[in-house]
Computed example of a mutant assay.
Amino acid sequence: MLLWINGPFGGGKTQTAHEIRRRLPGSVVCDPEHAGFGLRRMLPPELRGAGGREPLVDDFQDLVAWRQGVVEVLDLTLGKHEGVVIAPMTVTDPGHFAETVGRLGELGHDVRHFTLLAERETVLRRLRERGPGHLLHHVSGRNTGLRRESWAVRRLDHCLERLSGPEFAEHLWTDHTTVPKTADRIAVLAGLTLKPNNEGALRTRLRQARVGMKHIRFD
């Protein structure tokens, strides 16, 4: 089974994916973002937008190589790995969605797609609280705001509008729930059984902070 967890940038996809992996023995996270950033970093810095230049590729999902590569790697993984595979990735373009999530279903895999949604202000708050800017604010008192998340903020309204469409169901609203509870809801809908969540609140926050720091991108 493939669990594809969709949603806006800052919507909790990665945290939810790793929560499921933690509590579902044999499951693995295969993050399609790795392929995208690898392709983008093949470009020289000036073509990636360094120095305020216009990037040659603003969204790596527009690269055919990304869409085909993600399908190829996930198809291979699903064919060889016995446990559940979890892919946290924002996909808002219906064509790209068909070429990735849809294509994997056409190849015969059991694909379960979920979109995590939240109100705009909820997502903005989450973007402020993730990454090094939030840590710097606590340590030095400097408020770096959302500068590093500017790309995600620019795309937010587009993401929320597109992902609310019926083609991106099943929708799960996360404004008033926690990551472990969202993982529980996905498991129930997918017919899976997660191990009980016995973590305390502090340990959960520390673990989620580690996950967040590991997924910070600097270019």
Rank of each mutant, 00 (worst) to 15 (best):
M1Y: 05
M1L: 09
L3P: 00
W4I: 02
G7H: 02
G7P: 01
P8R: 06
G10N: 00
G11P: 02
T14M: 13
Q15F: 08
A17Y: 04
A17L: 06
R21K: 14
P25T: 13
V28Y: 06
V28M: 12
G36H: 05
F37N: 08
G49H: 07
G51A: 02
G52N: 10
R53H: 11
V64C: 05
A65Q: 14
R67W: 10
Q68Y: 07
Q68C: 09
V73S: 11
L76R: 12
V84D: 01
V85G: 02
T92P: 00
T92H: 06
P94Y: 09
A98I: 05
A98V: 06
T100C: 00
V101L: 07
L104I: 01
E106F: 03
E106Q: 13
D110E: 15
V111L: 11
R112Q: 15
F114N: 02
R125I: 00
R126H: 04
G133D: 15
L135K: 10
L136T: 12
H137W: 10
V139S: 07
V139N: 02
S140M: 12
N143L: 01
L146W: 05
L146Y: 04
R147H: 11
R148M: 14
S150Q: 14
W151N: 03
E161D: 14
D175E: 13
A183M: 11
N198M: 08
E199R: 14
R205L: 14
R217K: 13
R217A: 04
